[in-house]
Nucleic acid binder design. Sequence first.
DNA 1: AATGAAGTGGGGAGAAGTGGGGAGAAATGG
DNA 2: CCATTTCTCCCCACTTCTCCCCACTTCATT
Lengths: 139, 139
Amino acid sequence: MAMFLGEYEHTIDTKARLAVPAKYRQQIQASKGAVLSKGMGTCLAVYLFDRWEEKSNELVEGKSSEELRDFERRIYPSATEVDLDAQGRMVIPAKLRTYAHLTSETTIVGVRDHFEIWDRATWQAYQERLDAEGNTVPF
Amino acid sequence: MAMFLGEYEHTIDTKARLAVPAKYRQQIQASKGAVLSKGMGTCLAVYLFDRWEEKSNELVEGKSSEELRDFERRIYPSATEVDLDAQGRMVIPAKLRTYAHLTSETTIVGVRDHFEIWDRATWQAYQERLDAEGNTVPF
DNA sequence: AATGAAGTGGGGAGAAGTGGGGAGAAATGG
DNA sequence: CCATTTCTCCCCACTTCTCCCCACTTCATT
């Protein structure tokens, strides 16, 4: 079972390329590929394909046909298949880059069943907010 | 299994031609062709032929012969086979262009088993409506 | 130091998207 | 049935962008 851990500071270059951490890259290459989509909050999310299908199928459960249409038109257009060049980089489409306020300085974080791509400043602000709210690490 | 993802901004030229995104084009060419028809809402929909047949068969289930006739007269006349020129463009018939309020600025979105063609302004308004209703991306 | 893996940067060929001319088919009118 | 106009579609041209390839740096390990 795939598992994403850790925090990496990578950069998006002038061609909109972002190197995927080698540990994640291996998991993508060992699976049927991955999907990049808008994430919850100001970030992007990458799921292995199988897991992404599982999740979207769960989310579809019990929706009326009207809700379903809206939902599908929200989910699928905001997603793209991830493909990596020979150096293990992915290209971030302009729409998604804008959505997540990504510039060059980027932080990539593993979140159990997926990983997320944050603008570094946005990520830091988010972490500081969690600290301020008294969220602590429970270990 | 065919899968349509992503969002593309293309233009309809003065000859009513619209370039199909290369990723979708490959799927069309790898299949038995595709069908262009009116979509749900102010848009057009393109299904691969096999999937379109499946869907219309489902929709026919349990209809009386009267309902069936109406249904068929509604569906089939508005649908056309998609054929692409050497540059991968399709021609949008005038009736369909009017139906979907298409001008020049067009957005093409993948929605799992088909893709849709929207006037760009109409698509933006629709997405903003979903935002306003509190629809968020759940990933 | 030498080696290899990981991340970053950039040149350049080919693909993708856009625009328009023009021949032949189809529709329209006498 | 022929003439004229309209429309469809094939072809060529141009621009932009994607992606393949090569190269360099850094860091960890031996």
